[in-house]
Design a protein around this nucleic acid. Sequence first.
DNA 1: TGCCGAATTGCAGAAGTCTTCAATTCGGGT
DNA 2: ACCCGAATTGAAGACTTCTGCAATTCGGCA
Lengths: 112, 112
Amino acid sequence: MSVPLYQAKAEMFRTLGHPVRIRVLELLQAGPRPVRELLSEIDVEPSNLSQQLAVLRRTGVVVSFRDGGLVMYALSTPDVAELLAAGRRILGAVLADRDGLLAELNAHPPAG
Amino acid sequence: MSVPLYQAKAEMFRTLGHPVRIRVLELLQAGPRPVRELLSEIDVEPSNLSQQLAVLRRTGVVVSFRDGGLVMYALSTPDVAELLAAGRRILGAVLADRDGLLAELNAHPPAG
DNA sequence: TGCCGAATTGCAGAAGTCTTCAATTCGGGT
DNA sequence: ACCCGAATTGAAGACTTCTGCAATTCGGCA
């Protein structure tokens, strides 16, 4: 497998590695939304949101188009929703492992 | 949904956002491997690989244990493989869209 | 044309990440 | 105890990303 392909994969994941960008993608799972609405649901400066949307656009995970006076954003492919779902599962598994380990530690004091 | 949870999700994706870390995870899909072997397959300094492995460990996507004189690494959950697969699909979709658009542009010159 | 809200861009300082070096830890074998 | 290879850690400099401000673009509408 070629080196640039690893670069592309890494870039794709790095694109998702930001709280605002994650929130945007989760909101877009329910369908296209105008910037205005994203702004009202995510506590962030307009210029900052624009920057983050630009990052998502550059990588191609979202697309934008105009609808009347508003700019709309949408997921470029439903696969993105799957990626987020897989991420949630891993997070769940990791946290469960941690809690499980913590619980086990508590159940068996130092001498155990 | 709480703000720290978005932080955790973002951190989880950011963890994958590095070519060396992606390669490590892909190699680990086939089963646990010693650091030594990862080193021989990824062209990177030992200390650098260690740093990247530490990042993966911190987030909990991999675990490590000792086997004889070697340190082994393994995926902490098979869900990680699914995440990588979803990433591949999106990358495919995005690149196909780009190529498709490019092809269409070439098929319909300026006047079209 | 001129105005208004919507959205983006440019920029600069702060904050974080990456890479490599040298130094260190850790077990295993003798 | 000593040495050796395996792996990790610490730290510094180069580089990238993030954030908020001000300035700008863009479309729609009077």
